[in-house]
Design a protein around this nucleic acid. Structure first.
Length: 467
RNA sequence: CGGAGUGUAGCGCAGCCCGGUAGCGCACUUGACUGGGGGUCAAGGGGUCGUAGGUUCGAAUCCUAUCACUCCGACCA
């Protein structure tokens, strides 16, 4: 059967193909991948352009985006890594509502302080509601209701939920949207020492999180504003198109990132890692100290552009005091809990990853967040050998746990290569008539461009089993 | 909010200055030929020209208002 590539076809449900709508394998002819050959005019920066061109997102309004299937897959992978590393560090996942009552915010005093960035709404009873820009109040309310003893500490609750901030100026696609997904974690401890340990755990967790996504994230001392203290860091990844100018010691590029064996229950070990990662010089232009910078040898200085992908913050009793969140300590007295909050923007991270990893042909996904592991390209759909081999490889690679996107459309080879490069799957497995006749497949690495030819029978073993 | 700009088919654009009932490329539909880096031929479908008002015999085009989006500045995951 001849079938041109049409993303509309994905809407037509065919019974005999129903298994193709789920699971790790996907036929491009059945997928919804509205790729664009030309750059949409409104997209100025490369990640925005590529996300639109690769059919990942659809802009629905200023700073608001739908995630299309390819984008949703990446988002899910990013969130999963975030989730795993939060859990590893001892945080517990919950899910709080997006719409909040103004009451809690009046308690903390922020209902008046927050300003126009907060979207205020009234419900049908004329009650003041708001679309949450963050969740300190709500999580503090949960905490104070149930936790009364220091014995239940430390506690860290996080969720991954949509936020809305009516930004003065949304821009750069999902990089600065108004509605965006955020992982926000909140720690509760008896005292400053405990809070500092909680802070350190998130610090180390973040190092691992970004590294797993193929990013080099550098923690930089951040402005703590009116609250003061030294416990606030922004995690900046280096990308030529980044928003802010950053200055740091080249040491960061070679500092070892804590591995899976890291013991998050060992405060000394965690504190040591934080010490190591906060000693060399690093600052964004707002916090830049020319004198300290000048002391670094010329060759050790790294001046670059960066994108903020995470921010951790200790704020002590800022919310526990006005909201009366107390626990009884070992001394028998009541103590306001010492809190911190820790944010990562998964939607922004997607853009940041693209900014850090692309070329003139499109996106280059790190394997950990790629929407599919492998693009299987049938160079001549309709050719009996090519079709048979591709069907077989699709089944075998899927059975081995690999996510495969099978290009079974009848586009010409050039178009298929262009699509595969654009959407940036880490590997392309190419089956053409000549290779098929010789029993050979070609494998291309998207990142390096390297190609290798190998027997078709060796393809599955070449990729091995997914972990 | 201040400054700059753009709205014409799904996407990218021309037409506007000089008013006469909308066009190009890509995409899409049908058929044929093709088949290793965005093919060729043929035949088609699709547009309240952002919206509203005004000027005019007649408005995509001129005037007024308004909305949306983008970029630059102060803020932020």
């Amino acid at each position: 059967m001849k079938r041109r590539h049409s993303f509309r076809m994905a809407c037509r449900f065919r019974r005999k193909d129903h298994r193709l709508f789920h699971g790790p394998q996907m036929r491009l002819s059945r997928y919804f991948l509205p790729i664009l050959k030309e750059n949409p005019r409104e997209a100025e920066i490369v990640s925005h352009r590529l996300m639109l061109r690769a059919g990942m997102i659809r802009q629905q309004g200023q700073g608001s985006f739908s995630m299309l299937p390819l984008g949703k897959r990446v988002l899910d992978k990013v969130c999963q890594i975030v989730r795993e590393e939060q859990n590893r560090a001892g945080a517990l996942e919950i899910l709080m509502p997006t719409i909040q009552s103004a009451e809690l915010w009046r308690e903390s005093g922020r209902y008046d302080d927050y300003g126009k960035e907060m979207l205020r709404i009234k419900d049908r009873q004329e009650r003041d509601m708001l679309y949450g820009p963050t969740n300190e109040e709500m999580v503090t309310d949960i905490f104070r209701t149930y936790v009364k003893s220091y014995k239940d500490l430390p506690l860290n609750l996080y969720h991954i939920q949509w936020k809305f901030r009516d930004e003065v100026r949304p821009r750069f696609g999902v990089m600065r949207g108004r509605e965006f997904l955020m992982k926000d974690a909140y720690s509760f401890d008896l005292d400053y020492e405990g809070a500092k340990a909680a802070y350190n755990r998130m610090f180390v967790s973040y190092l691992r999180t970004f590294t797993r996504m193929g990013l080099k994230a550098i923690p930089m001392r951040a402005d703590t504003g009116p609250i003061g203290g030294d416990l606030s860091h922004e995690f900046i990844i280096l990308a030529d198109t980044g928003e802010s100018q950053v200055f740091c010691d080249k040491q960061f590029l070679s500092l070892p990132v804590p591995g899976e064996a890291t013991d998050f229950t060992d405060d000394t070990e965690i504190g040591g890692i934080v010490q190591e990662w906060t000693t060399p010089y690093a600052a964004t232009d707002e916090m830049h100290d020319e004198a300290a910078w000048g002391k670094l040898p010329e060759g050790e200085r790294l001046s670059a552009r960066g994108i903020e992908v995470g921010h951790i913050f200790h704020f002590g009793e800022k919310y526990s005091k006005p909201m009366n969140a107390k626990v009884q300590g070992p001394d028998g007295k009541e103590h306001f809990v010492s809190m911190g909050s820790y944010g990562i923007g998964p939607t922004r991270l997607i853009a940041a990853i693209i900014e850090a990893s692309h070329d003139e042909n499109g996106i280059i996904w790190p394997e950990s967040v790629a929407p599919f592991d492998i693009g299987l390209i049938n160079m001549k759909v309709g050719d009996a050998d090519c079709d048979r081999i591709c069907d077989m490889l699709l089944d075998q690679l899927s059975a081995a746990g690999r996510d495969v996107l099978y290009d079974d459309t009848d586009q010409r080879p050039g178009g298929k290569f262009a699509t595969a490069d654009l959407i940036g799957l880490p590997w392309q497995v190419i089956i053409g008539p000549c290779g098929a006749a010789a029993g050979e497949a070609e494998i291309k690495n998207r990142k390096t461009g390297e190609r290798e030819t190998l027997p078709i029978s060796a393809v599955v073993a070449r990729f091995g089993a997914a972990e």
